[in-house]
């Protein structure tokens, strides 16, 4: 009986202690709301893993927003080591102009095409966002790129029978990127390149290229990028002008000014579409075969972003 009284007293004290700890008794209104806001925290998607749709030459996981059109001008001067008479590359500039459009009904599909002066090449691609990095959720953003190029140069051997299909090449690429924090992102891009026509019988039509890229943001609007496309050794990758292709190594600076992104770079590649810079780069950094260049993108949006109806 005696014990019973004590235990009931204890339960009273416990109960009081419990109720006095209910939010509202001891917490301020703001603390309550903050706790509620933290509990209701939705999935947070990473944004701006890269500033541009290209890291430098290669695609980044970024695409224009749903229903937006992006206009891109890419420009590479000739080799710096050509000296004063060529104005350090001024006279042999190469250009690509393209449009990229993300479908209005899905932010996941982006269609693009462009025309390069390099090899008089038309290129078109479909970029698909498969996974978006989020917290909680996927640790990486995963995007695929499927591209086709058409070379429209005059036939090298007009006397033989030439097929249109010989002008075609394909690139299939997975972009795996992670934004580690507000200033640092990395991307790994395993790629298959297929050329329908190769010059020698020993040449492989299909070969593997591995891309590594990264960006470090150094201020609100400026980032430094670097990328390298590694031609996996042991493959017979078609030679260009009897020279073995080199991996494309580039460093660049992104400068973002609201609607535009300006990218300036130094690179040993002069082509600005995937198949070109991945498999036809013959410039060598150690010999000074470096091209200065820039990309400029401008985004246009046509639709007003639908305002969500409030959730109840």
């Amino acid at each position: 009986m005696h014990f019973c009284k004590i235990s009931s007293l204890a339960s009273w004290i416990l109960a009081l202690a419990f109720f006095s700890s209910i939010p509202g008794f001891s917490q301020s209104l703001l603390d309550e709301l903050e706790a509620e806001a933290d509990a209701a925290q939705e999935k947070e998607y990473a944004f701006a893993t890269f500033k541009g749709v290209r890291v430098i030459n290669g695609h980044s996981v970024e695409m224009p927003a749903k229903g937006e059109l992006l206009f891109i001008i890419q420009h590479r001067f000739g080799r710096i080591n050509t000296g004063f008479s060529e104005m350090f590359g001024w006279d042999q500039a190469s250009i690509r102009i393209g449009l990229e459009y993300t479908l209005p009904f899905s932010e996941r599909f982006n269609l693009g095409f462009g025309r390069s002066s390099y090899g008089k090449t038309w290129d078109g691609f479909l970029k698909t966002k498969i996974l978006k990095q989020s917290k909680p959720g996927s640790p990486v953003t995963l995007t695929s790129v499927n591209a086709m190029t058409i070379n429209t140069l005059p036939w090298a051997n007009p006397n033989q029978e030439n097929f249109f299909s010989s002008r075609l090449a394909y690139v299939h690429q997975l972009l795996i990127a992670r934004k580690f924090n507000s200033w640092f992102s990395l991307q790994f891009s395993p790629t298959l390149v297929h050329k329908n026509l190769v010059p020698e019988t020993r040449d492989q039509n299909t070969f593997v290229v591995l891309g590594f890229s990264g960006r470090a943001k150094i201020s609100n609007r400026v980032a430094i990028n670097a990328e390298y496309f590694w031609l996996v050794p042991g493959q017979e990758i078609p030679q260009i002008n009897n020279v073995d292709p080199q991996g494309a190594l580039s460093i660049g600076v992104d400068w973002e000014t609201g609607g535009h992104v300006f990218q300036f770079q130094l690179t040993n590649a002069q082509a600005m579409f995937d198949m070109g810079f991945m498999s036809e780069t013959i410039g060598r950094w150690d010999k000074g075969d470096i091209h200065f260049g820039f990309n400029i993108t401008r985004t246009f949006s046509f639709q007003k972003k639908g305002r969500k109806t409030p959730k109840s």
Binding site: L30, L33, E34, A37, A65, K66, E68, S301, K305
Partner: peptide, 26 residues
């Protein structure tokens, strides 16, 4: 999120900056 306690006259608002919606995604 908002709360108002009329007895005490207390009021509080909390909002997530990311939840602001703009006309343009950029």
């Amino acid at each position: 999120l908002a709360a108002l306690d009329l007895d005490k006259g207390n009021i509080a608002f909390v909002l997530q900056i990311r939840s602001f919606e703009f006309e343009k995604a950029l």
